[in-house]
Amino acid sequence: MNLFFEEKKHVYWNPYFGGFLLGIIILSAVYISGRSIGAGEAMKDTVVASIDMVAPHYTENSNFAAGQKDAEKSPMNSWIVFQVIGVFAGAFFSGILNNRVKVRLQKFPKISSKTRITWVIIGGLLFGIGSQFARGCISSSTFSGFIVLSLGGIISMVTVFVTAIIAAYFFRKLWV
């Protein structure tokens, strides 16, 4: 039994099958609720909600936070936050089934944990700031590009990809 699980650990689905299923899920999300996917929004809602909790005057006075805050309800009630809770649970379930749940730091074996953590923090900061400028993280802009054909979404998707290909050269020691 153990051997069986051990073998399954690195076996993933056929990417075209996974992609097709994801497409169908997005279609049903759009059909039923009129919304797509994107985790960056949930993080933003959480940040805005936290600022609101600690300093409610700030969100009222700051143009940005006030614009993001739904006047009717708490940001933590937003659709996307619930969706991310679901993503977390779904991923955990898949991890359990495939024996991939384990507390660890994943990194390229030739770099130290310290190097990995430093670049993860820098990457996260860049993402946090960048996703606000671009009005969406990669997944939300990709799908607003694909679904509603938004010019901004497509420009964002292509720019992220091209930048990453160029940046890959400078970061090669971290990965290969």
């Binding site: 820098i122 990457g123 420009i155």
Partner: peptide, 26 residues
Amino acid sequence: GSIFMGVGFVASGFCPGTSILSAAIG
């Protein structure tokens, strides 16, 4: 913003969505 995200993507290997998946499996 997309240039920031492109660099952040390669530096960390994550986008917000995949970081949630990684966090979920520990």
